[in-house]
């Protein structure tokens, strides 16, 4: 069968061997660093580190390629939108104006704006690949256990794992329903008008929703019958104990975080300014 989009793939690598909790804490700190800093030097280093971590995980790029390309598309649209709405954001931030090209009205291409948007893009590029990596290298149950470990209520943690557990089932149901409706004459191909397509789509979605609701009822009955929610805490079969590697990984990330923050705020603000 086809590979399921963004689901856990069992492999052997140092990244897979890290516990879910360590990866989650690491990822949160990593994202925080990338979000706070506008220091291009740090972002570039993180970007390269990110690629190295990805290579270390031995995850093949094709597993995440589809989502990654979609993300690139959004990033591109996002960049255009920023330029359309805030063409002078860079100038405001860096207090200088090096104009390359005047376009029209107050739209002009400045070095500051380009630099600002390049920084922004870099931020996304350091975070997103690792987010995808986290999803494909962490077993959902272990992920739930990790969420619980860092303080999220186990009910919410389990709901997340359960949602992941049901994605393949829902995909299968969707396919069956859609095929049967196509045999009755629904045409969802590109030839159809959008309005018609939307109306047709409801004849697939309604049965899907109702059959999913039925499943939810059964699963919640089954869960109550086995005592889910009876205690304040629960243990996790798939929880893994921290090893040296986990402590080491977290320490490295904490170091990265502290170091980045020191460099970023050394000169009093978050922006690295090459223009003055």
């Amino acid at each position: 069968m086809k590979h399921k989009i963004l689901s856990y793939i069992h492999q052997e690598s140092p990244i897979h061997r890290l516990t879910g909790a360590a990866k989650l804490i690491g990822f949160i700190l990593w994202s925080l660093t990338a979000m706070i800093t506008y220091d291009t030097r740090i972002l570039v280093v993180m970007f390269i580190l990110g690629i190295m971590i990805f290579l270390l995980s031995k995850v093949e790029f094709r597993y995440i390629s589809f989502v990654f390309y979609i993300f690139l598309l959004f990033l591109f649209i996002n960049n255009i939108a920023i330029f359309l709405f805030e063409p002078m954001q860079g100038v405001e931030m860096y207090h200088t104006k090096h104009e390359f090209l005047h376009i029209i009205g107050h739209y002009s291409l400045t070095a500051e704006q380009l630099f600002y948007q390049a920084n922004l893009t870099l931020k996304y590029l350091t975070i997103i690949p690792l987010a995808l990596l986290f999803m494909v290298t962490t077993h959902p149950s272990e992920f739930a256990a990790s969420l619980n470990k860092i303080g999220v209520s186990y009910r919410i943690s389990y709901a997340v794992a359960l949602a992941l557990r049901y994605i393949p089932d829902i995909q299968r149901d969707y396919q069956n329903i859609s095929l049967a409706q196509q045999a009755r004459g629904i045409d969802l191909s590109k030839k159809q008008k959008l309005t018609k397509k939307l109306r047709y789509a409801s004849s697939i979605l309604m049965p899907l929703i109702f059959s999913s609701l039925n499943q939810i009822e059964t699963i919640s009955a089954a869960m109550e019958l086995r005592g889910f929610g009876s205690q304040k805490r629960r243990s996790w079969y798939h929880e893994r104990l921290f090893t040296k590697a986990d402590y080491l990984a977290i320490m490295l990330i904490v170091l990265l975080f502290v170091f980045s923050m020191i460099i970023t705020f050394w000169d009093g603000n978050r922006f690295y300014n090459p223009f003055i």
């Binding site: 149950s141 039925n214 059964t218 699963i219 798939h238």
Partner: peptide
């Protein structure tokens, strides 16, 4: 429908 865990053991 009543299979809750992601693996048999779980």
């Amino acid at each position: 429908a009543q299979f809750i865990g992601l693996t048999a053991a779980e």
